[in-house]
Design a protein around this nucleic acid. Structure first.
Length: 425
RNA sequence: GGAGGGGUGGGUGAGUGGUUGAAACCGCCGGUCUUGAAAACCGGAAGGCCGCAAGGUCUCGCGGGUUCGAAUCCCGCCCCCUCCGCCA
Protein backbone atom coordinates (compact mmCIF):
# COMPACT_ATOMS: atom_id res chain seq x y z
CA UNK A 1 0.00 0.00 0.00
CA UNK A 2 1.23 3.46 -0.84
CA UNK A 3 1.77 6.05 1.87
CA UNK A 4 -1.14 8.49 1.73
CA UNK A 5 1.00 11.28 3.20
CA UNK A 6 3.58 10.71 0.45
CA UNK A 7 0.93 10.70 -2.27
CA UNK A 8 -0.45 13.95 -0.91
CA UNK A 9 2.92 15.68 -1.06
CA UNK A 10 4.03 14.23 -4.40
CA UNK A 11 0.76 13.89 -6.20
CA UNK A 12 1.95 14.46 -9.77
CA UNK A 13 5.06 12.34 -9.33
CA UNK A 14 2.97 9.42 -8.03
CA UNK A 15 0.54 9.77 -10.91
CA UNK A 16 3.41 9.77 -13.38
CA UNK A 17 5.10 6.70 -11.87
CA UNK A 18 1.87 4.73 -11.66
CA UNK A 19 1.20 5.74 -15.25
CA UNK A 20 4.39 3.94 -16.25
CA UNK A 21 2.79 0.72 -15.04
CA UNK A 22 -0.75 1.31 -16.18
CA UNK A 23 -1.38 4.16 -18.60
CA UNK A 24 -4.41 6.15 -17.55
CA UNK A 25 -4.42 4.93 -13.95
CA UNK A 26 -6.03 7.85 -12.12
CA UNK A 27 -5.22 8.83 -8.57
CA UNK A 28 -7.72 11.71 -8.55
CA UNK A 29 -10.06 9.98 -6.04
CA UNK A 30 -7.24 10.15 -3.51
CA UNK A 31 -6.97 13.91 -3.79
CA UNK A 32 -10.68 14.51 -3.15
CA UNK A 33 -11.14 11.79 -0.53
CA UNK A 34 -8.08 12.87 1.40
CA UNK A 35 -9.18 16.50 1.58
CA UNK A 36 -12.70 15.59 2.70
CA UNK A 37 -11.34 13.16 5.26
CA UNK A 38 -9.18 15.81 6.89
CA UNK A 39 -12.03 18.29 6.90
CA UNK A 40 -14.27 15.85 8.75
CA UNK A 41 -11.48 14.79 11.08
CA UNK A 42 -10.79 18.33 12.20
CA UNK A 43 -14.48 18.96 12.89
CA UNK A 44 -15.04 15.67 14.74
CA UNK A 45 -11.97 16.14 16.89
CA UNK A 46 -12.96 19.69 17.75
CA UNK A 47 -16.35 18.45 18.99
CA UNK A 48 -14.77 15.60 20.90
CA UNK A 49 -12.43 17.99 22.63
CA UNK A 50 -15.42 20.00 23.74
CA UNK A 51 -17.23 16.91 25.00
CA UNK A 52 -14.18 15.62 26.86
CA UNK A 53 -13.72 18.93 28.63
CA UNK A 54 -17.43 19.13 29.52
CA UNK A 55 -17.44 15.55 30.78
CA UNK A 56 -14.60 16.26 33.16
CA UNK A 57 -16.47 19.33 34.26
CA UNK A 58 -19.65 17.32 34.87
CA UNK A 59 -17.72 14.97 37.13
CA UNK A 60 -16.42 17.87 39.18
CA UNK A 61 -19.84 19.54 39.45
CA UNK A 62 -21.56 16.36 40.56
CA UNK A 63 -19.04 16.04 43.38
CA UNK A 64 -19.73 19.66 44.31
CA UNK A 65 -23.47 18.94 44.37
CA UNK A 66 -24.34 21.21 41.47
CA UNK A 67 -27.09 20.64 38.92
CA UNK A 68 -25.73 19.34 35.60
CA UNK A 69 -28.92 18.45 33.74
CA UNK A 70 -28.56 21.29 31.22
CA UNK A 71 -24.95 20.50 30.45
CA UNK A 72 -25.76 16.83 30.05
CA UNK A 73 -28.51 17.63 27.57
CA UNK A 74 -26.14 19.86 25.63
CA UNK A 75 -23.51 17.12 25.48
CA UNK A 76 -26.09 14.62 24.33
CA UNK A 77 -26.66 16.86 21.33
CA UNK A 78 -22.94 17.23 20.72
CA UNK A 79 -22.71 13.44 20.89
CA UNK A 80 -25.38 13.08 18.21
CA UNK A 81 -23.53 15.51 15.98
CA UNK A 82 -20.28 13.57 16.51
CA UNK A 83 -22.05 10.34 15.64
CA UNK A 84 -23.35 11.73 12.36
CA UNK A 85 -19.98 13.16 11.35
CA UNK A 86 -18.19 9.97 12.31
CA UNK A 87 -20.47 7.96 10.11
CA UNK A 88 -19.65 10.15 7.14
CA UNK A 89 -15.97 10.01 8.06
CA UNK A 90 -16.07 6.21 8.16
CA UNK A 91 -17.63 6.13 4.70
CA UNK A 92 -15.05 8.53 3.27
CA UNK A 93 -12.20 6.58 4.85
CA UNK A 94 -13.50 3.28 3.60
CA UNK A 95 -13.73 4.57 0.03
CA UNK A 96 -10.27 6.07 0.38
CA UNK A 97 -8.52 2.97 1.73
CA UNK A 98 -10.39 0.64 -0.60
CA UNK A 99 -9.08 2.65 -3.52
CA UNK A 100 -5.61 2.99 -2.05
CA UNK A 101 -5.42 -0.78 -1.55
CA UNK A 102 -5.99 -1.41 -5.24
CA UNK A 103 -3.03 0.73 -6.33
CA UNK A 104 0.15 -1.19 -7.19
CA UNK A 105 3.57 -0.20 -5.91
CA UNK A 106 5.57 2.54 -7.62
CA UNK A 107 8.21 1.16 -9.99
CA UNK A 108 11.81 2.02 -9.13
CA UNK A 109 13.57 4.49 -11.43
CA UNK A 110 15.77 1.70 -12.87
CA UNK A 111 12.78 -0.37 -13.99
CA UNK A 112 12.31 -0.14 -17.77
CA UNK A 113 8.92 0.97 -19.05
CA UNK A 114 7.25 -1.60 -21.24
CA UNK A 115 4.17 -3.41 -22.42
CA UNK A 116 5.22 -7.01 -21.89
CA UNK A 117 7.86 -9.72 -21.74
CA UNK A 118 9.63 -8.36 -24.83
CA UNK A 119 10.50 -5.19 -22.92
CA UNK A 120 12.25 -6.90 -20.03
CA UNK A 121 15.94 -5.99 -19.92
CA UNK A 122 18.52 -8.77 -20.02
CA UNK A 123 21.23 -7.91 -17.48
CA UNK A 124 23.66 -10.81 -17.81
CA UNK A 125 23.86 -14.52 -18.39
CA UNK A 126 25.86 -17.35 -16.87
CA UNK A 127 27.21 -20.40 -18.68
CA UNK A 128 26.32 -21.50 -22.20
CA UNK A 129 23.43 -23.46 -23.67
CA UNK A 130 24.66 -27.07 -23.74
CA UNK A 131 25.06 -28.76 -27.14
CA UNK A 132 23.75 -32.24 -27.93
CA UNK A 133 24.67 -34.79 -30.57
CA UNK A 134 21.05 -35.95 -30.45
CA UNK A 135 17.65 -34.34 -30.22
CA UNK A 136 17.14 -33.46 -26.50
CA UNK A 137 13.83 -34.66 -25.11
CA UNK A 138 11.40 -32.58 -23.12
CA UNK A 139 11.07 -33.62 -19.46
CA UNK A 140 7.47 -34.74 -19.96
CA UNK A 141 8.84 -37.53 -22.13
CA UNK A 142 12.08 -38.12 -20.21
CA UNK A 143 10.46 -38.36 -16.79
CA UNK A 144 7.80 -40.96 -17.63
CA UNK A 145 10.35 -42.97 -19.64
CA UNK A 146 12.65 -43.05 -16.62
CA UNK A 147 9.69 -44.09 -14.49
CA UNK A 148 10.15 -41.17 -12.08
CA UNK A 149 7.32 -38.88 -13.17
CA UNK A 150 3.67 -39.77 -13.71
CA UNK A 151 1.02 -37.26 -14.79
CA UNK A 152 -1.71 -39.75 -15.63
CA UNK A 153 -1.96 -41.31 -12.19
CA UNK A 154 -1.84 -37.86 -10.57
CA UNK A 155 -4.73 -36.78 -12.77
CA UNK A 156 -6.68 -39.87 -11.75
CA UNK A 157 -6.34 -39.30 -8.01
CA UNK A 158 -6.60 -35.51 -8.14
CA UNK A 159 -6.89 -33.76 -11.48
CA UNK A 160 -5.11 -31.76 -14.13
CA UNK A 161 -1.96 -29.83 -13.23
CA UNK A 162 -0.82 -32.22 -10.53
CA UNK A 163 2.16 -34.56 -10.71
CA UNK A 164 3.30 -37.76 -9.03
CA UNK A 165 7.03 -38.23 -8.45
CA UNK A 166 8.21 -41.79 -7.94
CA UNK A 167 11.49 -43.43 -6.91
CA UNK A 168 14.51 -41.40 -8.02
CA UNK A 169 12.19 -38.58 -9.03
CA UNK A 170 10.82 -38.13 -5.53
CA UNK A 171 14.30 -38.56 -4.10
CA UNK A 172 15.78 -36.01 -6.50
CA UNK A 173 13.12 -33.45 -5.60
CA UNK A 174 13.84 -33.98 -1.89
CA UNK A 175 17.60 -33.78 -2.50
CA UNK A 176 17.16 -30.46 -4.30
CA UNK A 177 15.20 -29.03 -1.38
CA UNK A 178 17.84 -30.20 1.05
CA UNK A 179 20.68 -28.89 -1.13
CA UNK A 180 19.11 -25.45 -1.48
CA UNK A 181 18.27 -25.05 2.21
CA UNK A 182 21.75 -26.15 3.30
CA UNK A 183 23.40 -23.72 0.88
CA UNK A 184 21.35 -20.79 2.14
CA UNK A 185 21.69 -21.48 5.85
CA UNK A 186 25.34 -22.61 5.85
CA UNK A 187 26.83 -20.21 3.31
CA UNK A 188 24.42 -17.32 2.91
CA UNK A 189 23.52 -16.80 6.55
CA UNK A 190 19.79 -17.45 6.43
CA UNK A 191 17.74 -18.73 9.34
CA UNK A 192 15.60 -21.68 8.32
CA UNK A 193 11.90 -21.56 9.15
CA UNK A 194 9.17 -24.10 8.54
CA UNK A 195 5.92 -22.13 8.54
CA UNK A 196 2.27 -23.18 8.40
CA UNK A 197 1.13 -24.15 4.91
CA UNK A 198 -2.17 -22.38 5.48
CA UNK A 199 -2.62 -18.72 6.31
CA UNK A 200 -5.49 -16.40 7.14
CA UNK A 201 -6.79 -13.47 5.12
CA UNK A 202 -4.85 -10.95 7.23
CA UNK A 203 -1.50 -12.47 6.29
CA UNK A 204 -2.45 -12.48 2.60
CA UNK A 205 -3.49 -8.85 2.85
CA UNK A 206 -0.11 -8.04 4.38
CA UNK A 207 1.88 -9.33 1.42
CA UNK A 208 -0.58 -8.01 -1.17
CA UNK A 209 -2.36 -11.12 -2.50
CA UNK A 210 -5.66 -9.99 -0.99
CA UNK A 211 -8.06 -8.43 -1.63
CA UNK A 212 -7.24 -8.15 -5.33
CA UNK A 213 -6.06 -11.65 -6.22
CA UNK A 214 -8.32 -14.00 -4.34
CA UNK A 215 -9.06 -15.91 -7.57
CA UNK A 216 -5.44 -17.15 -7.66
CA UNK A 217 -5.75 -18.89 -4.30
CA UNK A 218 -7.07 -22.16 -2.91
CA UNK A 219 -9.42 -21.51 -0.01
CA UNK A 220 -9.86 -24.10 2.70
CA UNK A 221 -13.47 -24.30 3.82
CA UNK A 222 -15.11 -24.03 6.28
CA UNK A 223 -12.15 -22.40 8.05
CA UNK A 224 -11.55 -19.33 5.89
CA UNK A 225 -7.91 -20.31 5.63
CA UNK A 226 -5.94 -20.32 2.39
CA UNK A 227 -3.24 -22.67 1.15
CA UNK A 228 -0.03 -20.67 0.81
CA UNK A 229 0.64 -19.58 -2.79
CA UNK A 230 4.28 -18.99 -1.72
CA UNK A 231 6.25 -19.08 1.54
CA UNK A 232 6.59 -15.32 1.10
CA UNK A 233 3.21 -14.98 2.80
CA UNK A 234 3.79 -16.73 6.13
CA UNK A 235 7.48 -15.79 6.33
CA UNK A 236 7.06 -12.06 5.62
CA UNK A 237 4.25 -12.03 8.18
CA UNK A 238 6.55 -13.41 10.89
CA UNK A 239 7.20 -9.82 11.94
CA UNK A 240 3.76 -8.35 11.22
CA UNK A 241 2.70 -5.79 13.84
CA UNK A 242 6.22 -5.66 15.27
CA UNK A 243 8.76 -2.92 15.85
CA UNK A 244 12.24 -4.34 15.37
CA UNK A 245 15.44 -2.90 16.78
CA UNK A 246 17.71 -1.60 14.01
CA UNK A 247 20.62 -3.78 15.13
CA UNK A 248 18.62 -6.88 14.17
CA UNK A 249 18.62 -5.87 10.50
CA UNK A 250 19.08 -7.20 7.97
CA UNK A 251 17.18 -10.39 8.78
CA UNK A 252 17.20 -13.30 6.34
CA UNK A 253 14.87 -16.28 6.48
CA UNK A 254 14.70 -19.23 4.14
CA UNK A 255 11.84 -21.66 4.04
CA UNK A 256 10.76 -24.71 2.14
CA UNK A 257 7.03 -24.99 1.49
CA UNK A 258 4.77 -26.46 -1.11
CA UNK A 259 2.92 -23.70 -2.97
CA UNK A 260 -0.66 -23.86 -4.16
CA UNK A 261 -2.05 -21.75 -7.00
CA UNK A 262 -5.36 -22.00 -8.76
CA UNK A 263 -3.81 -20.76 -12.04
CA UNK A 264 -7.18 -19.33 -12.97
CA UNK A 265 -6.88 -17.70 -16.37
CA UNK A 266 -3.86 -19.72 -17.48
CA UNK A 267 -5.88 -22.34 -19.38
CA UNK A 268 -4.06 -23.61 -22.39
CA UNK A 269 -0.73 -22.25 -21.19
CA UNK A 270 2.09 -24.67 -20.32
CA UNK A 271 -0.38 -27.52 -20.16
CA UNK A 272 2.34 -30.15 -20.59
CA UNK A 273 4.84 -31.05 -17.93
CA UNK A 274 5.86 -29.65 -14.58
CA UNK A 275 6.18 -26.00 -15.50
CA UNK A 276 2.77 -24.81 -14.35
CA UNK A 277 1.18 -26.89 -11.59
CA UNK A 278 -1.46 -26.30 -8.95
CA UNK A 279 1.01 -27.57 -6.35
CA UNK A 280 4.78 -27.17 -6.49
CA UNK A 281 7.69 -27.04 -4.09
CA UNK A 282 9.75 -23.94 -3.53
CA UNK A 283 12.57 -22.79 -1.31
CA UNK A 284 11.98 -19.13 -0.58
CA UNK A 285 14.34 -16.41 0.64
CA UNK A 286 12.92 -13.46 2.58
CA UNK A 287 14.85 -10.44 3.80
CA UNK A 288 13.96 -7.54 6.08
CA UNK A 289 16.12 -4.50 5.49
CA UNK A 290 16.62 -0.89 6.49
CA UNK A 291 15.31 1.34 3.67
CA UNK A 292 18.74 2.76 2.91
CA UNK A 293 20.24 -0.60 2.02
CA UNK A 294 17.34 -2.47 0.44
CA UNK A 295 18.68 -2.22 -3.10
CA UNK A 296 22.03 -3.61 -1.99
CA UNK A 297 20.02 -6.37 -0.34
CA UNK A 298 18.21 -7.04 -3.60
CA UNK A 299 21.55 -7.62 -5.37
CA UNK A 300 22.69 -9.87 -2.54
CA UNK A 301 19.45 -11.87 -2.55
CA UNK A 302 19.58 -12.32 -6.30
CA UNK A 303 23.15 -13.56 -5.96
CA UNK A 304 22.03 -16.14 -3.41
CA UNK A 305 19.45 -17.51 -5.83
CA UNK A 306 21.98 -17.48 -8.68
CA UNK A 307 24.41 -19.49 -6.56
CA UNK A 308 22.01 -22.44 -6.65
CA UNK A 309 21.96 -22.50 -10.44
CA UNK A 310 25.73 -22.09 -10.64
CA UNK A 311 26.41 -24.99 -8.27
CA UNK A 312 24.10 -27.13 -10.34
CA UNK A 313 25.79 -26.00 -13.56
CA UNK A 314 22.59 -24.76 -15.16
CA UNK A 315 22.79 -22.04 -17.82
CA UNK A 316 20.62 -19.02 -17.04
CA UNK A 317 20.19 -15.31 -17.57
CA UNK A 318 19.06 -12.45 -15.37
CA UNK A 319 16.38 -10.05 -16.56
CA UNK A 320 14.94 -6.91 -15.02
CA UNK A 321 11.19 -7.01 -15.36
CA UNK A 322 9.66 -4.06 -17.16
CA UNK A 323 6.78 -2.11 -15.63
CA UNK A 324 4.14 -4.28 -17.33
CA UNK A 325 5.53 -7.53 -15.89
CA UNK A 326 6.12 -6.23 -12.38
CA UNK A 327 3.95 -7.90 -9.75
CA UNK A 328 1.44 -5.82 -7.79
CA UNK A 329 3.55 -5.23 -4.67
CA UNK A 330 7.00 -5.05 -6.24
CA UNK A 331 9.08 -1.93 -6.89
CA UNK A 332 11.76 -3.84 -8.77
CA UNK A 333 12.13 -7.49 -9.76
CA UNK A 334 14.93 -9.57 -11.25
CA UNK A 335 13.84 -12.82 -12.81
CA UNK A 336 16.30 -15.68 -13.17
CA UNK A 337 15.51 -17.59 -16.35
CA UNK A 338 16.97 -21.04 -16.77
CA UNK A 339 17.71 -22.56 -20.16
CA UNK A 340 15.53 -25.51 -21.13
CA UNK A 341 17.33 -27.37 -23.95
CA UNK A 342 14.35 -29.30 -25.32
CA UNK A 343 12.21 -26.20 -25.61
CA UNK A 344 15.17 -24.06 -26.66
CA UNK A 345 13.85 -21.35 -24.35
CA UNK A 346 14.56 -19.51 -21.12
CA UNK A 347 11.96 -20.07 -18.41
CA UNK A 348 11.52 -18.26 -15.11
CA UNK A 349 12.91 -20.24 -12.20
CA UNK A 350 13.28 -17.47 -9.62
CA UNK A 351 11.82 -14.04 -9.06
CA UNK A 352 13.69 -11.67 -6.73
CA UNK A 353 11.89 -8.52 -5.65
CA UNK A 354 12.25 -5.45 -3.50
CA UNK A 355 8.86 -4.38 -2.19
CA UNK A 356 10.30 -1.37 -0.39
CA UNK A 357 7.75 -0.41 2.30
CA UNK A 358 4.68 -1.52 0.32
CA UNK A 359 4.20 -4.79 2.21
CA UNK A 360 5.60 -3.38 5.45
CA UNK A 361 2.88 -0.74 5.51
CA UNK A 362 0.15 -3.33 4.93
CA UNK A 363 1.55 -5.79 7.48
CA UNK A 364 2.74 -3.06 9.89
CA UNK A 365 6.35 -4.17 10.01
CA UNK A 366 8.49 -1.39 11.44
CA UNK A 367 11.90 -0.84 12.95
CA UNK A 368 13.42 1.72 15.28
CA UNK A 369 16.44 3.35 13.57
CA UNK A 370 18.01 4.03 16.96
CA UNK A 371 17.05 3.85 20.62
CA UNK A 372 14.40 6.45 21.37
CA UNK A 373 13.71 7.27 17.72
CA UNK A 374 10.31 7.10 16.04
CA UNK A 375 9.52 3.79 14.35
CA UNK A 376 9.77 3.64 10.55
CA UNK A 377 8.53 1.19 7.97
CA UNK A 378 11.29 -1.20 6.96
CA UNK A 379 11.76 -2.76 3.53
CA UNK A 380 10.87 -6.35 2.64
CA UNK A 381 12.36 -8.46 -0.13
CA UNK A 382 11.99 -12.00 -1.30
CA UNK A 383 13.11 -14.35 -4.00
CA UNK A 384 12.80 -17.98 -4.96
CA UNK A 385 15.89 -19.91 -4.17
CA UNK A 386 14.63 -21.79 -6.22
CA UNK A 387 11.38 -23.16 -7.61
CA UNK A 388 12.17 -26.85 -7.06
CA UNK A 389 9.96 -28.45 -9.72
CA UNK A 390 11.34 -26.19 -12.42
CA UNK A 391 14.86 -26.94 -11.22
CA UNK A 392 14.12 -30.64 -11.63
CA UNK A 393 12.89 -29.92 -15.16
CA UNK A 394 16.09 -28.03 -16.01
CA UNK A 395 18.29 -30.80 -14.56
CA UNK A 396 16.54 -33.58 -16.46
CA UNK A 397 16.62 -31.72 -19.76
CA UNK A 398 20.17 -30.37 -19.36
CA UNK A 399 21.90 -33.53 -18.14
CA UNK A 400 20.12 -36.08 -20.33
CA UNK A 401 22.28 -38.54 -22.23
CA UNK A 402 21.82 -40.25 -25.59
CA UNK A 403 20.82 -43.50 -23.85
CA UNK A 404 17.97 -41.79 -21.97
CA UNK A 405 19.74 -41.69 -18.62
CA UNK A 406 20.43 -38.48 -16.70
CA UNK A 407 23.70 -37.52 -15.00
CA UNK A 408 23.36 -36.13 -11.47
CA UNK A 409 25.40 -32.92 -11.03
CA UNK A 410 28.16 -33.31 -8.52
CA UNK A 411 26.83 -30.79 -5.98
CA UNK A 412 23.69 -32.87 -5.58
CA UNK A 413 25.25 -36.30 -5.13
CA UNK A 414 25.86 -36.01 -1.36
CA UNK A 415 22.11 -35.58 -0.95
CA UNK A 416 21.37 -38.63 -3.12
CA UNK A 417 23.51 -41.15 -1.32
CA UNK A 418 26.32 -40.59 -3.83
CA UNK A 419 24.19 -41.60 -6.81
CA UNK A 420 25.73 -40.34 -10.08
CA UNK A 421 23.14 -41.23 -12.66
CA UNK A 422 19.42 -41.80 -13.02
CA UNK A 423 18.62 -44.74 -15.27
CA UNK A 424 15.32 -46.25 -16.41
CA UNK A 425 13.99 -48.72 -13.86
C1' G B 1 -16.68 -30.92 20.05
C1' G B 2 -17.95 -30.04 25.77
C1' A B 3 -16.77 -27.33 30.64
C1' G B 4 -14.07 -23.57 33.07
C1' G B 5 -10.35 -19.48 33.35
C1' G B 6 -7.93 -15.40 30.95
C1' G B 7 -6.40 -11.41 27.13
C1' U B 8 -3.73 -4.12 30.04
C1' G B 9 2.70 -0.68 27.66
C1' G B 10 9.33 -4.49 25.69
C1' G B 11 8.20 -8.25 30.03
C1' U B 12 5.61 -9.41 34.89
C1' G B 13 1.36 -7.24 36.75
C1' A B 14 -2.32 -3.35 39.51
C1' G B 15 -6.66 -0.87 38.14
C1' U B 16 -13.22 2.01 42.64
C1' G B 17 -17.55 4.42 35.41
C1' G B 18 -15.10 10.63 36.20
C1' U B 19 -7.69 14.92 35.19
C1' U B 20 -5.80 6.60 34.40
C1' G B 21 -2.56 6.63 28.33
C1' A B 22 -2.79 3.86 32.57
C1' A B 23 0.40 2.17 39.55
C1' A B 24 4.45 -0.92 40.89
C1' C B 25 8.47 -4.04 39.64
C1' C B 26 11.92 -5.93 35.89
C1' G B 27 14.25 -4.62 31.54
C1' C B 28 15.84 -0.32 28.35
C1' C B 29 18.01 4.84 27.52
C1' G B 30 20.45 9.35 29.68
C1' G B 31 22.88 11.53 33.93
C1' U B 32 25.44 11.72 38.96
C1' C B 33 29.19 8.94 41.49
C1' U B 34 33.74 5.85 39.78
C1' U B 35 40.36 5.21 36.82
C1' G B 36 36.55 2.04 34.35
C1' A B 37 32.47 -0.98 35.52
C1' A B 38 28.93 -2.75 39.04
C1' A B 39 25.88 -1.02 42.96
C1' A B 40 23.28 3.22 44.59
C1' C B 41 20.74 7.65 43.42
C1' C B 42 18.29 11.18 39.85
C1' G B 43 15.78 11.60 35.31
C1' G B 44 13.57 9.74 30.52
C1' A B 45 10.81 6.64 27.48
C1' A B 46 3.99 3.48 24.17
C1' G B 47 1.78 3.68 19.16
C1' G B 48 -1.53 5.77 15.22
C1' C B 49 -4.05 10.06 13.06
C1' C B 50 -4.69 15.73 12.17
C1' G B 51 -1.37 19.98 12.64
C1' C B 52 4.45 24.29 10.69
C1' A B 53 3.90 24.28 15.81
C1' A B 54 1.31 24.70 20.22
C1' G B 55 -1.92 21.34 20.82
C1' G B 56 -5.97 18.00 19.84
C1' U B 57 -7.84 13.13 19.01
C1' C B 58 -7.89 7.74 19.02
C1' U B 59 -5.93 3.08 20.97
C1' C B 60 -6.06 -1.41 27.48
C1' G B 61 -7.56 -8.66 21.94
C1' C B 62 -11.42 -7.10 17.79
C1' G B 63 -16.37 -5.11 16.68
C1' G B 64 -20.90 -3.08 18.47
C1' G B 65 -24.00 -1.04 22.61
C1' U B 66 -25.30 1.79 27.39
C1' U B 67 -23.62 6.79 29.38
C1' C B 68 -22.48 13.72 29.55
C1' G B 69 -18.15 10.36 30.26
C1' A B 70 -15.94 3.20 29.50
C1' A B 71 -9.63 -0.35 30.55
C1' U B 72 -13.80 -0.57 34.05
C1' C B 73 -21.04 -2.18 32.66
C1' C B 74 -23.82 -5.16 28.45
C1' C B 75 -23.78 -8.15 23.63
C1' G B 76 -21.14 -10.70 19.57
C1' C B 77 -16.50 -12.50 17.63
C1' C B 78 -11.19 -13.91 17.83
C1' C B 79 -7.04 -15.81 20.41
C1' C B 80 -4.48 -18.18 24.66
C1' C B 81 -4.49 -21.53 29.07
C1' U B 82 -6.58 -25.84 32.09
C1' C B 83 -9.69 -30.27 32.23
C1' C B 84 -12.78 -33.96 29.37
C1' G B 85 -13.62 -36.32 24.49
C1' C B 86 -11.28 -37.51 19.66
C1' C B 87 -6.61 -38.03 17.22
C1' A B 88 -0.84 -38.08 14.20
Amino acid sequence: MLDLAYVRKHFDEVAERLGRREPGLSVEPLREGDARRRELLVEVERLKQRRNEASRDIGRRIKAGEDVAGLKQEMREVGDRIGALEQELAEVEQRLTQFLETLPNLPHATVPSGQGEQDNRVERSWGEPPQYAFEPKPHWDLGPELGILDFERAARMTGARFALLIGDGARLERALIQFMLELHIAEHGYTEVLPPFMVNAGALFGTGQLPKFEADLFKVQPHDYYLVPTAEVPVTNIHADEILDADRLPIGYCAYTPCFRSEAGSYGKDVRGLIRQHQFNKVELVRFSAPESSYDELERLTGHAEAVLQRLGLHYRVVTLCTADLSFASAKTYDLEVWLPAQRAYREISSCSNFEDFQARRAKIRYRPEAGAKPRMLHTLNGSGLAVGRTLVALLETYQQADGSVIVPEALRPHLGGQERITPR
